[in-house]
Amino acid sequence: MTTATVARASISVRGVSKSFEIPREAPFLALKEASIEVEPGEFLALVGPSGCGKSTLLRMIAGLLKPTEGEIWVGDRQITRPQEDFSIVFQSPRLLPWKTVLENVMLPLALGRGKKVPKAEAKARAQELLELVQLEGFGGRFPSELSGGMQQRVSIARSLVNSANVLLMDEPFGALDAFTRERLNEELLRIWSATGRTIIFVTHDMDEAVFLADRVAVMGKEPGRIVDVVDIPLARPRNAESRTSEEFFGSVRRLRQTLSTGVGVDAGGAGAHRAE
């Protein structure tokens, strides 16, 4: 698990729209004509106000929702159903309270389709991932015995146990305090660097998006849409000092301006936006 597992294919979102039927009302257009390319091993963040379609887009990429219009592809395969090589992490850890930490991490292997993983191998893989998220020694505890941040780290370990190439994260740290959130941001970057997975990360926090991502897709609403894609010039590896750099503050300013105006900003230099 400690050697990089590089995602093998790009993700292509092509003119995707999503409408929801509402009884006795006109259909609600949640997302309109979204297009973006995500490269293998890239860390992409989606930011925008509530109701702009961030989570809807993420669920369509996961295959949990079907687009009303447009297509989503991974490599040469169109996404029409949940993908076995994609994992998703939600804002709530969603751990089973009657199972231990180790059993929760092993759960996808027990429920997975295809080749059955022997129990000893599944246990060893789960233990290695608990070490990766710095929870070695906690495998025998139950979720209620962990802090919120520790529970979310268990959720991340569980999402990695089946060797998924793509990790989809829907505001996974949104319910945590600022200190714990920043610590887990750094932890997530360490895990991403160690595993080489593609990550698509939904957040409403612009500081978090800039700190984590290679690029940030900025979304507007009424209807939901991608209004700009911003390259982040912040050097890697990133740490607490990265949050005090001019590149960091400059990128956050650009995101704020784009969100306030609803149109892309031409930075005219480092970090200039790149629309798809």
Rank of each mutant, 00 (worst) to 15 (best):
A235Q: 12
Q134N: 11
L58K: 13
D231C: 12
L44N: 05
V6F: 09
P172Y: 06
S251Y: 12
Q257H: 12
R256G: 03
R14P: 00
K66R: 09
L44Y: 04
K115Q: 11
A175R: 02
V265L: 14
D177K: 09
R94Q: 15
D205L: 09
L189P: 10
V202P: 14
V133D: 08
W98P: 06
T244V: 10
Q257S: 13
T198F: 09
L109E: 03
A235L: 12
S144I: 11
E71W: 03
A275I: 09
A209P: 02
G140W: 03
L212Y: 01
T2S: 10
G148P: 08
D76T: 13
F249E: 01
R215T: 08
E276H: 13
K221Y: 06
A34M: 07
P82S: 15
E71R: 15
K119T: 12
A164S: 15
R274P: 03
E84P: 15
T5A: 13
F248W: 11
L31A: 05
M1P: 15
S159Y: 04
V74G: 05
S159F: 04
M1S: 15
K54T: 04
Q152N: 09
V210D: 10
S144Q: 14
L58C: 13
R274N: 10
F211N: 08
P97V: 01
A194W: 00
P40E: 06
N104D: 05
E145N: 04
E187Q: 13
E21F: 07
G264A: 14
S147R: 06
Q83W: 08
T5W: 11
E69H: 10
A157V: 06
E131A: 14
E187R: 03
T180I: 11
L188F: 07
E69Y: 05
R197I: 05
S50N: 05
S92R: 13
L212H: 02
G271D: 06
V227E: 07
E33N: 15
F211E: 08
D228P: 06
R81I: 05
L146M: 15
Q91R: 02
N162T: 01
G149E: 13
F248V: 12
Q91P: 01
Q151Y: 00
I22A: 01
L146I: 11
A275F: 11
S35K: 02
V74N: 10
V47L: 05
M206V: 14
V6P: 10
F211I: 09
R77V: 10
R81S: 15
T261R: 15
G114I: 06
P143V: 07
F43R: 02
F173L: 12
T244P: 00
V252K: 14
G53F: 04
I200F: 03
N165H: 13
E69V: 07
V229E: 07
G174Y: 00
K99G: 02
R254T: 09
G174L: 02
L65V: 04
A209H: 02
D85M: 00
L29P: 06
Q78F: 03
L111K: 06
L135E: 02
M169R: 07
L259H: 01
T3I: 11
W192P: 01
T100V: 07
V166F: 07
E241L: 10
H273R: 13
E246D: 14
